[in-house]
Each structure stands twice: as structure tokens, then as C-alpha cells.
Design a protein around this nucleic acid. Structure first.
Lengths: 161, 161
DNA sequence: TGGTATAACATGGTATTTTATGGGAATCAA
DNA sequence: TTGATTCCCATAAAATACCATGTTATACCA
């Protein structure tokens, strides 16, 4: 409630945190309350699509896709042909999801299957976007990321010593 | 109180000092008054996440993360793999914390555990960020830091002698 | 300068509100 | 009808706002 008020005044629209919510028999999942606050504030909608690179669902506000589309329109050189292809894939796959009065969305079979999600959906904030993972896949992914950071930033390793 | 006035007039928004506050059974801790003044002044919120390099919690204003999100957006392309990994780690772990009318935030189990905090949280200012340590871990860390400085800057050793 | 009144703060406790989640009725399409 | 989707209600747990108190720090005055 406090959050909502502050979001009303400011412009901070970051998807944060990691939340695990249950997927019930009907396929319903609660969108984390913080995420809902963002959607309401921006008067936009949630859009989800299969991640192109990982076994997870990716989501963002429709606003962001709008921005992406505009960027592509306006600059021919900024986006490579490959990226253009990727964009087509995303737009083709993306679907709009609105939540009911209790804050739940209903993910499709296609998405759930791509992410190996059966009974629990893990929402992972990514700033302007977020991802939805199965518990097992996310555990593996997080481990991979933390390992990678250690290797790529020896200076950090040094500091922690 | 004097602090607040100065903050109002100047643009000095540094987290300073070291303050030890109690963590109650529910995980509530008073955010140091000076820190709260900064948050209010900037009309932002506090965001905390597990330090990547040390057994402590790290915190900053949401503004700072906003800036980071924008920088990442602009510096790399929409589909960059590095961007993907980085954003997952940072934003996925970060959580927004708003304090109640008495100035307390409620830290999560995950964060407290990472920092070995049970009953006392030590807030350590770091300028734009701050850290939260357990008493024991902070004592060790401070000793380590002071020792390191001595070795790296013999001139200081000379003076203190 | 010293002493006292005042305000701010940390902290324990309690009440109220959100939120996640299960289940049922209503709506709609095949 | 059947199967699925949307809407609404109920509830338990968790998060949040609010109240009260002792203590400390600050401001004020003699």
C-alpha cells in the first residue's frame, strides 16, 4: 500500500526479487504483488513469451515491447539483421496476460512446458523484464550465474578474501 | 534533526557512520535515522541484496538501481547475453524495503542468513551504498581492512607509530 | 558552563490490511 | 453436454501500519 503510493509519485519501475508462487490445478498463478503494482501504475499489461536462450518464460510490460518496436523502426543500423529476426520471433510468440481481481494470470500450456513448470513458478526480477522458472531450473541457473561472476571478476574475489 | 536540515539544503547523500541496531523476532530493524533522512529526501526507497563477495547484506537507494538499469539498457543491446546474466543476478536478488512510521524495515530470512545475523545488525556506511553485518563478521572485517591499510600504506604506519 | 526541558530515537507489542491460494458459480465455445 | 475460462467469495498466513514506553541525544536557559 505504501509501495503503491510511492510508485504513484515516482518513476521507479523495476521488477525485483525472486518469488515462488504456486500454479494451481487450473493453471493459475499469482503475479507477485510488486509486479502488479507496476502494471497498474503504468496502465499497461504483462506480456510473456518463451525465452530464446533459456528454459524459462520471459515477461515484461507491453510498454517495453512498444519501445523495442519503435527503436527498430527508427534505426536501421542499430539493430543487426539477426536481432531483427530475434525480434520477429519474440513478437510472434508474445502473448498478453491480464490478471483477475485476486491478481492471478493463467499461463498457457506452451509456456509452462517450455519452462518445465508443473506446480511452482519462480518469478525472477530483471529490472525492466522478469523471468519465470521452474524451481529446479532456476536453482541450476542461479548456481551457474554465481559461479560465472566469480570467474569473470577476479578483483571481486580478491576483495572478499 | 540538524542532519535533516543540512540534507535539505545540500545535495550530500552519503551513507555514513556505523550503527548497531537490534533485530527482533520478526526480523524488524530500525534503519538508522540518518539513512531514513536520505531516503525521504530523495523520495526513493531502500533496496537490499546479498553481497556477491562478502557475508553481509548490501543496500542502496532504488534510484541507484534505476540508473544501473538504464545504463545497462543503453550500453548493450536488447538481446545481449552478458546483460541477461548480470541483470538476473542483481535485480533477481534485490528486494525493495520500505520502513514503517517508526522507521523499521523487515529483513528477509534469506538476507539475514547470508550475513549470519541473528539479533543485532550493524549498519556500515559506504557512501552511495551501505552494508549490514553481524557483529562478529563486522569485527573481523574491520580488523582485516585496517590491517590491509597498514600493509599497503607504510607512511600511515609511520605516523601512527 | 552546567543543568534541565524537550524532542528524537530505538524497540516491544498489537491491530489492521494485503496477499496468496483454494473452491464454487457463472459464462462461453465447441 | 463437456471442457475450459472468467469472476467472485472465503480463509489462513504474512506483511504492514499504528500505539506505547524507556532511553538517549539535542536544544534551551540560567
Amino acid at each position: 500500500m505504501c509501495t503503491r503510493k510511492i510508485l504513484t509519485m515516482r518513476k521507479s519501475f523495476l521488477f525485483l526479487d525472486t518469488v515462488a508462487n504456486k500454479v494451481d490445478a487450473k493453471g493459475r498463478v499469482s503475479l507477485p504483488a510488486d509486479y502488479r503494482a507496476i502494471v497498474k501504475e503504468l496502465s499497461t499489461e504483462i506480456v510473456c513469451y518463451r525465452s530464446l536462450t533459456a528454459p524459462c518464460i520471459e515477461g515484461c510490460t507491453e510498454d517495453l515491447l512498444e519501445k523495442l518496436a519503435t527503436d527498430i523502426e527508427n534505426s536501421t543500423d542499430f539493430f543487426s539483421e539477426t536481432q531483427d529476426d530475434l525480434t520477429n520471433l519474440i513478437f510472434g510468440d508474445a502473448k498478453r496476460f491480464s490478471f483477475d481481481s485476486t491478481g492471478r494470470i493463467m499461463l498457457t500450456e506452451k509456456l509452462l512446458k517450455h519452462a518445465d513448470i508443473t506446480d511452482t513458478a519462480v518469478f525472477v526480477g530483471k529490472g525492466r523484464k522478469f523471468q519465470i522458472w521452474s524451481e529446479a531450473n532456476w536453482a541450476a541457473e542461479e548456481a551457474r550465474l554465481r559461479e560465472k561472476i566469480k570467474l569473470n571478476r577476479p578483483s571481486l574475489k580478491e576483495e572478499s578474501k
